[in-house]
Design a protein around this nucleic acid. Structure first.
Length: 505
RNA sequence: GGGAGCGUAGCUCAACUGGCAGAGCAAUGGACUCUUAAUCCAUAGGUUGUGGGUUCGAUUCCCUCCGCUCUCACCA
């Protein structure tokens, strides 16, 4: 590294190291520990919100002791204002030479980004801002790197995701997103706990690929010398627990799918899955309305939520439409009986397929699979308001119970909002012989070249043979729900550390 | 993986048709005891993502590679 060519960042770094030394010279460890502030910025602000300068003065100004990061620093020679931020809010601190005496010299060695503590009486300044006049001032942690610019903040999305800590400092609204996400998850836990569900944790590393149609990550255990799959879904484990008598269980945890990344897909994402014995998929539609409309209110304050410019109404009474009807609404040429006719469905599906690989795959699909394709092609994206789509083909529902009247469809629904799948639920298939056949059909689909298929899970069949009570289960994508409630255009905005390609070196 | 776009100072952004790389904030030195993007004076800060090519001359045009964004495919 050439000595003459010192970058700006290195220059600031060196300057700040020197300032840290000045702290030490003044008797303060720039990386010390053990200071416990007695008050919080936000609480002070709330408590004295309505009080004028005179009222504060008359009552005898209360003394407060706060600590936080300096996010703004303005010096006027013999006086300076700092703005401190802690976890509850921001508060201005005034440093005065005539109050602090020698201690005021430390000001020269402060930067925006440093952590400090200040103690003193609370006043209102001439411009009306609540301000602690520091009588005691304690530097706590020296920051060696400069903060992003105060006015424009940090907008480079790559830096925002890679260095989320900087994003949180520079863009306070980011914190609100994750507070809302936290409120969402807490609401769901309280909702399910109140209904007698118990929260469990099932394996993340699976010997088999099961529970969903997706490509897995493969990992290896050294001591056992076996390959394992990062789970794509917890489904089969949770249902084993229902077999064991845990009649209402849920898990909120990560799933991993080795697929593309987009504004709606992160390789690891958070799913709620819950299972309720003696319930049907129709019961779960009611429960889902209750839970999600309640969550909308708990998180945003209203059941009407504006997402990317369009109002979504989560008030109960959502539309319930069969998949066939949803397709027929967009493709009127299809008659109800056509959904048994693979050739007819294929002809319609091919109209919208232009990639050769896609067309080739369509050639071997059966009627049920083609119906799924047609739904995605024509209907899915148009479902803006919360809508339950029901009666999924059995061919694309390997774990769902067949409908009693129509065995080619299942007792299943998915919830769509803003054109996206948010939830997937069904009455569980608890007939072990039928389940065997469905697993075999998955193997057959794999033979045909479908990459996303489930393995045959012998132990799961054995569990079913011991008896799974009539049960309904559901999975809800927490990240996507969080997107809707925080008006986030990208899933990366609701995941603290989304997966990015590592930078070279 | 395909397509489109982007990458300039620590941050936010300029630089016309190819002609001396600039501003604001941040930084440094100075003035200032009530600021709210404080103000004023001065100073410093760059291998224009990387590597190559065209050209008298490249931030600008072409190609390689790296990263990001959007989009299609896959999926939730």
């Amino acid at each position: 590294m050439p000595d003459e060519q010192v970058s700006k960042e290195q220059e600031i770094y060196a300057q700040r190291l020197e300032k840290a030394q000045k702290w030490r010279d003044a008797g303060f460890n720039p990386y010390g520990n053990g200071y416990t502030p007695r008050h919080l910025a936000g609480e002070i602000g709330t408590r004295h919100e309505g009080q004028s300068a005179e009222e504060l003065e008359k009552a005898g100004p209360p003394t407060y002791d706060v600590a936080g990061r300096i996010i703004l620093l303005r010096s006027f020679g013999k006086m300076a204002f700092l703005k401190l931020r802690d976890r509850t809010g921001e508060l201005q601190v005034q440093l005065k030479k005539d109050v602090l005496g020698e201690g005021y010299e430390l000001l020269k060695h402060l930067d925006a980004g440093d952590f400090v503590a200040a103690e003193g009486p609370l006043i209102r300044t001439k411009t009306g801002e609540l301000t602690i006049v520091a009588q005691r001032f304690t530097p706590l942690t020296k920051s060696l790197l400069p903060l992003p610019e105060k006015w424009h903040g940090l907008t480079d999305v790559e830096v925002r995701y890679r260095q989320r800590y900087l994003d949180l400092v520079a863009n306070p609204e980011v914190k609100d997103v994750f507070l809302k996400r936290n409120r969402l998850v807490r609401y769901i836990r309280e909702f399910l706990d109140a209904r007698g569900f118990i929260e469990v944790e099932t394996p993340m590393m699976h010997p088999l690929v099961s529970g969903a149609a997706a490509r897995p990550f493969v990992t290896h255990h050294n001591a056992l010398d076996i390959d394992l799959f990062m789970r794509i879904a917890p489904e089969l484990y949770l249902k084993r627990l229902v077999v064991g008598g845990l009649e209402r269980v849920y898990e909120i945890n990560r799933n991993f799918r080795n697929e593309g990344i987009s504004t709606r897909h992160n390789p690891e994402f958070t799913m709620l899955e819950f299972y309720q014995a003696y319930a049907t998929y129709e019961d779960l539609m009611d429960l889902t309305e209750e839970m999600i409309s309640g969550a909308a209110r708990a998180v945003t304050g209203d059941t009407k939520v504006v997402y990317q410019g369009q109002e979504l109404d989560f008030s109960k009474g959502w539309k319930r439409v069969s998949m066939a009807d949803a397709i027929r609404e967009k493709v009127p040429s299809l008659a109800p009986e056509d959904f048994q006719d693979a050739e007819k469905l294929r002809a319609v599906a091919l109209e919208k397929m232009h990639v050769q690989a896609e067309r080739t795959a369509a050639m071997t699909m059966n009627a049920g699979e083609l119906m799924g394709v047609l739904f995605e092609q024509h209907a899915e994206g148009t479902l803006v308001q919360p809508t339950f789509i029901t009666h999924f083909p059995t061919a694309v529902s390997p774990l769902a119970r067949r409908n009693d009247e129509h065995p080619e469809i299942t007792d299943r629904f998915e919830l769509f909002v803003a054109g996206r799948e948010i939830a997937n639920a069904f009455s569980e298939l608890n007939d072990p012989l039928d389940q065997k056949g469905r697993f075999l059909a998955q193997l057959e689909a794999k033979q045909r070249g479908q990459a996303e298929t489930m393995d045959y899970d012998e132990d799961y069949i054995r569990a079913l043979e011991h008896g799974l009570p009539p049960t309904a289960g559901e999975g809800i994508g927490i990240d996507r729900l969080a997107m809707l409630f925080t008006d986030a255009p990208s899933i990366r905005d609701v995941i603290l550390f989304p997966l990015l390609k590592p930078l070279p070196r």
